[in-house]
Design a protein around this nucleic acid. Structure first.
Length: 435
RNA sequence: GCGAAAUUGGAGAAGCGGUUAACUCACUUGGCUGUGAACCAAGCAUUCACCGGUUCGAUCCCGGUAUUUCGCCCCA
């Protein structure tokens, strides 16, 4: 027996159904917003992430799976997908063609060397979108609303959008200087992490969880006082539009996020269940001004995106019972009563499949009782019994497992018989709906 | 990276320094030889995560390893 590698997990059977359900929901919403799928490599050059995610981020500093390949190239398993998506947009010259914005969505595995916990793995899956070529603050709203509707369709109620504005370059340079001056005075009393943050990225001191540090943060200069008029105006437009769309938000001036490429608007959706359990952030995203240029793209092209963790969403949905019953059913289960009828049985099953009936055959040589049990386990509509009498007379018994009725049918008429039963079924449903 | 706790069949789970490792569910087979339930009977861990140590004897005590969970950190 081999153990799983730490922080990895198998996604199988009903768990896999749940993951596809989450992914498909977001994919459909993204398609509806005219986003196109992008599939980029799982491995990228290490430098890509150092440049984009940022040397001062925890991800780059301690969470990347980096190795040298046989040609001595430094390779990294992607810790997130934004960098790769932007790289591919730049490499494929999609921006030079003038079709901005490029609207991309993605789904796939990411890798971070972190301490595993429930709903949190070293190999995990993300869905996300990037909208590159953003010239209007309303694009930011579009990105936020896409995320909002995806979560809503999955059944999340009482979502809280937590939002902040980090400002553009000019705002941030000014603000960081002021902030550095302020924290320099208090640095001796602050935690070790913050001393580190002071050197690397002073903004990240703002979301330190240390209580005594929070006291210091409380009196720190605030970003809103250092925003350039343009940043401020854009942020106000975003907030106003969110109001109009009925998306509730809360401004958190200390929301910074751990990736260095964000500027201007950043956001997270937080969730508290009806039972009052606070699950924290389900996803996060924001705007980036300099990332495209940093990766070698044209100047002055901005983007916006968000990502959700599939594992995290699935874990919360499991916990909060948000998965509707995914109804897996089988139309027909063919049951040969003797192994000598198995060849006949698979012929019948094949015919059924070619005619649009999802079918399976019992080839395990069980007794009728055992096969019926198996049929029930698959949530089968029709059990088809093939015994001596049927084989001799070229017939088959069709047993409706829900109605608990059965009929012996000529094999030639099996498909038309089932088609007729199905259409009656449909009409029945229609009548029920009308009532 | 730091701190803590856990790990017994397919699942839940009891157990104790001494060899039939309880019980429940699931599953298999038969009673019922061609019909789903119930009932009854039988079967279902030479083994208690792995490796060492202590011991006459270890699933139980000790040490190490692995994994998981929880907290910190961070995030999705």
């Amino acid at each position: 027996m081999f153990n799983l590698v730490k922080g990895t997990h198998d996604v199988i059977l009903s768990e896999a159904d749940k993951y596809s359900y989450i992914e498909q929901t977001f994919i459909q919403v993204a398609e509806f917003f005219n986003y196109k799928e992008f599939r980029t490599p799982i491995i990228e050059s290490s430098e890509l992430f150092q440049r984009s995610v940022g040397d001062s981020s925890d991800i780059v500093r301690k969470e990347m799976y980096t190795f040298l390949d046989k040609g001595d190239r430094s390779i990294t398993l992607r810790p997130e997908l934004t960098a790769g998506i932007i790289r591919s947009i730049v490499n494929n010259k999609l921006l030079a063609l003038g079709d901005i914005p490029v609207k991309a969505y993605y789904v796939g595995p990411c890798f971070r060397y972190e301490r595993p916990q429930q709903g949190r793995y070293r190999q995990f899956n993300q869905f996300g979108i990037e909208c590159v070529g953003v010239v209007s603050p309303y694009r930011d709203v579009e990105v936020i609303s896409l995320c909002y509707y995806g979560l809503k369709i999955l059944g999340f109620k009482n979502l809280k959008l937590v939002i902040n504005c980090l400002g553009d370059d000019e705002s941030r340079t000014n603000y960081k200087n002021v902030l550095r001056d302020y924290f320099a005075k208090h640095l001796d009393n602050m935690c070790g992490d913050c001393k580190e943050r002071f050197k690397l990225n002073v903004l990240r001191i703002l979301d330190c969880k240390d209580p005594s540090d929070q006291e210091i943060v409380k009196n720190a200069p605030r970003i809103e006082d250092y925003l350039t008029p343009k940043s401020k105006e854009n942020f106000d437009k975003i907030l106003k539009t969110l109001d109009n769309l009925g998306i509730e938000y809360e401004i958190d001036r200390n929301l910074v996020r751990g990736l260095d490429y964000y500027s201007d608007v950043v956001f997270e959706f937080h969730y508290t269940s009806s039972k009052g359990i606070n699950y924290g952030a389900l996803c996060g995203g924001g705007h980036y001004n300099k990332l495209i240029q940093e990766i070698g793209g044209p100047k002055d092209i901005e983007g916006c995106g968000f990502a959700i963790g599939i594992e995290r969403i699935a874990s919360v949905m499991n916990d909060d019972n948000l998965f509707a019953d995914i109804d897996e059913s089988l139309d027909c289960y063919v049951m040969p009563l003797d192994i000598s009828y198995q060849n006949k049985a698979i012929e019948i099953a094949t015919t059924l499949r070619l005619n649009g009936f999802k079918s399976d055959v019992n080839l395990e040589g069980k007794g009728l009782k055992g096969m019926l049990k198996k049929a029930l386990k698959f949530n089968t509509k029709y059990a088809l019994i093939l015994g001596e009498d049927e084989v001799n007379s070229n017939k088959i018994v069709v047993k409706d497992l829900k109605e608990e009725k059965q009929e012996s049918i000529e094999l030639d008429e099996l498909i038309s018989y089932l088609d007729q039963k199905e259409s009656e079924d449909c009409e029945c449903h229609h009548h029920q709906n009308e009532e």
